[in-house]
């Protein structure tokens, strides 16, 4: 236990990195998700197909592969190393954010899509009978109600993303899991470190869980009885 107390400054930095990775990826991911979920509703088959295959590919492969393709794979291409993209892609931090955001974006798109589908038919019929345009029906009815319906599932996705950021330790970043691995391999005390870092993760899971519950309560004015 003394050792863990000694390591608190290191673990604090690592925790901050984990929080940064989670928040950045989730913020970019939610916009990607919304964008692709709206594309999916498009009548044009090419557009909706593009969105479908984006979700299909990123949900069908492990996050680790996606991260490695972006971090190790893209560095191999000559034109990327010479372009302006290289300033971003040579940093493991940004590679991790790109990979995580694309991954969570795919899951989020799927969550929002099913949220849009769950919107009651009667609401849409009511909007039609009031003479609302398609554009208005979508942005004033389907979008807000659908997003509200997706909140619980999105909470799970937030927790999955928090866990997913642990993969950043495989591309040289010292996040919470990376720090844990480093301490274990230098001091050989896996159980202690696991309990300590595991509790930090569980604490954040708990925070997310309660945050989602709070948001759900706040936005639940429609179905109040």
């Amino acid at each position: 236990m003394n050792l863990m107390i000694e390591k608190i400054p290191e673990l604090l930095n690592a925790t901050i990195l984990t929080i940064q990775l989670t928040l950045f990826s989730l913020i970019v991911g939610i916009f990607l998700g919304l964008f692709f979920a709206i594309l999916r509703l498009n009548k044009n088959k090419v557009v909706s197909g593009f969105s479908y295959y984006y979700s299909f590919i990123f949900r069908g492969t492990p996050l680790l592969v996606q991260l490695f393709i972006i971090y190790f794979g893209l560095a191999q291409l000559e034109f990327i190393r010479e372009s302006f993209l290289w300033t971003v892609l040579k940093k493991p931090f940004w590679c991790a954010i790109i990979a995580f955001a694309l991954n969570t974006g795919a899951y989020t798109a799927e969550i929002f899509r099913s949220g849009f589908e769950k919107v009651d038919k009667q609401l849409i019929d009511a909007a039609k009978s009031l003479g609302m345009s398609k554009y208005n029906t979508f942005y004033k009815i389907i979008l807000p109600v659908g997003l509200k319906r997706s909140i619980p599932a999105y909470g799970n996705e937030m927790i999955l993303m928090l866990k997913g950021t642990s993969l950043a330790s495989t591309v040289t970043l010292i996040d919470l899991t990376g720090a844990a691995k480093y301490i274990i391999s230098t001091h050989f005390n896996p159980v202690e470190v696991f309990i300590f870092t595991g509790s930090i993760y569980l604490f954040f899971t708990f925070l997310i869980h309660n945050f989602i519950k709070f948001i759900e309560k706040k936005t639940n004015y429609i179905y109040k009885t």
Binding site: S166, F194, L202
Partner: peptide
């Protein structure tokens, strides 16, 4: 379900 898989594997 709440702790990252990688941490469990390291354990």
């Amino acid at each position: 379900r709440g702790v990252p898989e990688l941490l469990i594997i390291y354990l």
